[in-house]
């Protein structure tokens, strides 16, 4: 039961990743693209967790944690670059 539920959930998350991708490509503003990228990162974390449940392993945990950290840092870096035109002051 849990296996098929994981597969269904993974396909729904993939669908929402695709919707975010459309927003990323359409824009129109720079902030929208950053927001879409941020949401895609969160969705990717969800996919990694689902993969972990599906495989019955904890090995993917570190991957999800790293993805969360990198996603956050890259979002802040993008936003800061747009705000200041410079990352390291």
């Amino acid at each position: 039961m849990i296996t098929s539920a994981t597969l269904i959930a993974a396909s729904v998350v993939s669908l929402s990743l695709f919707l975010c991708l459309i927003r990323l490509l359409r824009g129109p503003s720079m902030g929208d693209r950053v927001l879409a990228l941020d949401t895609m990162t969160v969705n990717a974390i969800a996919l990694i967790i689902l993969l972990g449940i599906y495989g019955g392993t904890h090995l993917y945990f570190e991957g999800a944690l790293l993805f969360a950290m990198l996603g956050f840092v890259s979002t802040v870096a993008f936003a800061r670059f747009i705000l200041r035109g410079d990352l390291i002051e």
Binding site: M1, A5, A9, L15, S16, L19, C20, L35, A46, I53
Partner: peptide, 30 residues
Amino acid sequence: AAVTCLAIGAFFTLVGAIGLLKFDTPMKRL
């Protein structure tokens, strides 16, 4: 319980993506 949580998570993830795509101004999309 786990399957219920999976269903809730999938539903809200999809609704969030729909909201991101649907609204017309940047602040609403946020």
